[in-house]
């Protein structure tokens, strides 16, 4: 064996990415129903990725629906009162929600584990109640209509907009994975005392990750608002926007971009299919999947495949070594 240590080659992700790109454009030619499913898959996929990005630090959030809903409202309010153009409401929502998360995070990121998780759950509920009751601004329980939809509701253009957003989210997630942020978040997850002793500013990294992932959730909420043309407290803050991305990530595998992607495609498509036969049955199936995965497949599908690749790589290097000796 050469003395220079090589990092394992990384060809699989590119093949995978090319395949994914192909799949992403398929709904454009496949008709309106597949497009609807694909939009829903993309929405949950982005939420799943953003949730995963934060849990890479060990911080478990149950607040996805809160920032998602807040993003929808930010888009509606920005468009209505400030005249933000439809497509730019995504950016507007990302910034507004990111800043809100920064302010809240400054306080709640001193909490860990279950305490943090429960506070994020409570936050989502607080956001919903505020939007519900601030009638003069938000229309109260009736919600708000957006003055104009993105691309005047053109479904192909809207779908492409979501694809672009998804590409950006995947890009940010991969940047997390391959920059110093990856080392900081992983060290924090493994052991905070060791991380701090290596010079990691834990608070700063957690705050950054929380603001960015919440900002993503806000942008996704805005895209959803553009898609449907309205926001309401009940639909925008629906707890499914927390639970479904979580189930998808667990199924696909945590701590990476491709786990949530795989989980979202699988559960999203299967869920749509199930909806046709048993309304709300898909939610039951999600629940069952969460339980089964946690019990029998804690690393998810991507983790399982990685494990297999890893083992076969090791046995080949071992036999190569044996041959050379």
């Amino acid at each position: 064996m050469s003395s220079i240590e090589q990092r394992p080659r990384r060809r699989a992700p590119w093949v995978f990415a090319a395949l994914a790109a192909l799949l992403a454009f398929l709904p454009l030619v496949a008709g309106p129903y597949p497009q609807t499913i694909a939009r829903s898959v993309l929405t949950y996929m982005m939420l799943a990725i953003s949730w995963d990005m934060l849990i890479r630090s060990g911080q478990l959030s149950f607040g996805i629906a809160g920032f998602f809903g807040l993003g929808g409202y930010a888009a509606a309010i920005g468009a209505t009162y400030l005249g933000v153009p439809p497509v730019l409401t995504l950016v507007f929502a990302a910034v507004v929600v990111g800043v809100v998360a920064l302010l809240i995070g400054a306080v709640v990121l001193r909490l860990r584990g279950m305490y943090f998780a429960i506070v994020t759950l409570a936050l989502a509920e607080i956001f919903r109640i505020v939007m519900h009751n601030w009638s003069s601004l938000t229309g109260g329980p009736n919600g708000m209509l957006l003055p104009r939809s993105a691309f005047d509701g053109n479904s192909v253009a809207t779908y492409l907009m979501m694809l672009v957003l998804a590409a950006v989210v995947i890009g940010v997630s991969e940047w997390f994975r391959h920059s110093r942020i990856h080392f900081a978040l992983t060290a924090i997850r493994d052991n905070e005392t060791v991380a701090a002793s290596a010079g990691v500013n834990i608070y700063a990294y957690l705050l950054t990750a929380f603001a960015i992932t919440s900002g993503i959730q806000g942008a996704v909420g805005a895209s959803y608002a553009q898609l449907f043309g309205f926001v309401t407290p009940e639909s925008s803050f629906n707890v499914n926007y927390t639970l479904i991305p979580l189930a998808m990530t667990l199924l696909g595998g945590m701590y990476g971009t491709w786990g949530p992607v795989v989980g979202a495609v699988l559960l999203g498509v299967v869920g749509e299919y199930l909806k046709l036969f048993i309304p709300y049955g898909h939610l039951l199936v999600y629940g069952v999947i969460i339980v089964l995965v946690i019990l029998f497949m804690p690393r998810g599908i991507v983790g399982l495949v990685r494990g297999h690749l890893e083992r076969s790589r090791r046995t080949t290097t071992a036999s190569e070594k044996g041959g050379a000796a």
Binding site: E5, R180, F183, A184, T186, A187, R189, D190, N191, T193, V194, A195, S197, A198, G199, V200, N201, Y255
Partner: peptide, 24 residues
Amino acid sequence: FQLIHPLEDLTLVENVMTGFLFAG
């Protein structure tokens, strides 16, 4: 650390890298 806590989700070299990355 008396009670050794390797960063178990990082490899050997990545464990050692963290100090150079953040403190350095």
